[in-house]
Design a protein around this nucleic acid. Structure first.
Lengths: 349, 349
DNA sequence: CACCGGCTTGGTAACGATACCATGTACGAC
DNA sequence: GTCGTACATGGTATCGTTACCAAGCCGGTG
């Protein structure tokens, strides 16, 4: 049974092997495989038969060497898909890539600019046609340089400070301003802010919206309630507990992404922290949605947008550049986001 | 300002360009770039300087043409990352790939065997060194063929019927048998089964565990409570409502993956369906975990395993084959899974 | 002083696929 | 019957890189 199997791995069949078996020249076989036309039905049949018999698959690396050949690869760099948000973005990119007959090659930067720069190099070496990136930091010279060198790039969700690059953002500032504004209008004050460090542009923008809402309401932002930090779960839980233990606990929390929201929720729902009169329970407003937000037994407002559409849009910007010969000035688009009320009322039976 | 920019896209610098600028032969430049040693410090410095100045990145496609060169690419095919479960698997694969100095190239089969077969061809054409697949169906001749042709492959989570391929499974049958058995021991009967169609091996195996538990308890499986179907949310919600509306509603639900669990939960938590005496509320046991399972106001037991570890293990099996010259018989590994009690008690205050 | 050995450097060919051009063939038109 | 044209096929060169071999240079040794 097993004796027929080669011990060494079988060499992959080449176009020449197919041509030999079909009794034609490699050139004719190439035309058939590449579906270029101008080959008789007879030969086409023979070549296809030989290719099938040998299990031939074209060597993309070799094809790619010829000038003017497209790799059909789109590079994607996201920070981490631990957060389902980025999985959605990735899904949108993939859908757009597929529509354009492209394959995606994915890297995860884990929010590390060094890793991100390495990935850009590596993907570039693999002859990707374009790149979609969720940049780790606002300061990203490697991305600016790649764009300048002619690589079609689009940034998704976050932007960078220097460099002329297509970018798809979310209406962070406006939506946060509106929703935090509502809290202040209700007289909720002070409001705690938990978000990423300002080197991350979304975190910075969401904080800006938070500040603007306060300015609108004529209220000072109390810095004792502001925490700009990585969204590491244990740290978020600890910080939330600290805030709740203050002499004047926050009347509401604003969380700048779903990682913060979830872990703040964990503390707010902790049975040890029971808000005897229901009205004194802090309100929670968070950016980004998360699965099961509708089933959580705590009232919360989430500022939501379509992450998949965002990914798709970014990919389409990249593809637009791939398909056009000239360099056009970079575009920045902003996707709408909207506050959605979620959560079951606790103990309301 | 903008006038200096070329209208046409700049040609990428080649190794020859670097060599010319450094005043050495392409061969010497190649040695420096490839870190092969045997080049004087002086030349090394010059080549690196030139490479940096030109923004040179090696053309991987050209390098790859030479015989015996590895692409450094690992192909990954998952069904969809809409389900965070597969994002975890992907993350595990990526971690293992990174440890081995490999990049991953990802495709989504959307559970369509035809798409999956296309992806295998396409990835193979890109000279991937190996492949990690969550197969869409148990019947997958394209995967068996690829393995037979010498492609290092590992299957993750699901298996295929024919073909000799390394596989990492989860202890579906045993864990389901145990947990469903507990329900039956408590006298819960009938138990509804909601899971995927049996062409998906995990769905089939989890159903097998469900049946075994009944056999153990000497109880007949009542087919009126069994639904094998795609996990499309609206359909799951509808089916759950139908089951609850039966003359004898199920005393418990078993859901074969987290998509089913979540949508069954949505119905069970619907305020219109209120279980006046708490004990009559159906119990829920589900396979796979999901984020926020701990915050859901409904008692549930989830059969959990480490999806990231599973992905990593599958990748390591593929890498093992990549690194060994001979063909060894395929391995099947089974990861443990364990029932975990979750969920807040409703209205328990 | 001749020779040897080690070290550095460069020339050449080849990987697999395809663009370009040249050649061959068949058939219709005058 | 000859020529032209359209179509089918094949030969050759080439893409960027690196393995292999050859050659040059140096210092040391007999």
């Amino acid at each position: 049974m097993e004796q027929g199997a080669d011990i060494a791995r079988a060499r992959k069949p080449t176009l020449k092997d197919v041509a030999n078996m079909a009794g034609v020249s490699p050139m004719t076989a190439s035309r058939v495989i590449g579906d270029k036309g101008g080959v008789s039905a007879e030969m086409t049949r023979k070549v296809h038969a030989a290719a099938k018999k040998l299990g031939y698959a074209r060597n993309e690396a070799a094809r790619l060497m010829r000038p003017g050949q497209r790799s059909g690869l789109l590079g994607v760099i996201v920070t981490n898909i631990d957060n389902p948000y980025y999985a959605q973005v990735l899904l949108g990119v993939e859908a757009a890539a597929k529509d354009a007959g492209r394959q995606i090659i994915t890297g995860f930067s884990h929010n590390d600019p060094r890793l991100e720069a390495e990935l850009v190099r590596d993907l570039s070496a693999r002859q990707i046609e374009g790149l979609i990136v969720v940049p780790a930091r606002a300061d990203a010279p490697h991305l600016a340089a790649a764009a300048k060198a002619g690589m079609p790039i689009a940034l998704a969700s976050r932007s960078i400070n220097h460099g002329r690059v297509d970018t798809v953002l979310v209406d962070d500032i406006g939506a946060v301003r509106t929703e935090v504004g509502k809290l202040l209008d209700e007289g909720r004050h002070p409001i705690a802010f938990l978000g990423g460090e300002p080197t991350i542009t979304t975190a910075a923008r969401r904080y800006a919206g938070f500040v603007q809402a306060h300015t609108d309401a004529g209220v000072e932002v109390d810095q004792r309630y502001v925490r700009q930090m990585p969204s590491e779960p244990a740290a978020v839980v600890r910080v939330t507990r600290e805030l709740l233990a203050m002499d004047e606990p926050p009347a509401a929390f604003f969380t700048a992404n779903n990682r913060f929201s979830i872990n703040v929720l964990r503390v707010l729902l902790d049975p040890h922290a029971r808000w005897t009169p229901h009205s004194t329970a802090p309100r929670l407003v968070g950016f980004d949605t998360f699965e099961l937000a509708d089933l959580v037994p705590y009232p919360l407002t989430l500022i939501e947008h379509d992450a998949q559409a965002l990914g798709r849009l970014a990919a389409e910007l990249t593809l637009r550049r791939i398909n056009s010969a000239e360099r056009t000035p970079p575009i920045t688009m902003t996707m709408p986001s909207v506050g959605v009320v979620h959560g079951l009322q606790p103990n309301s039976s």
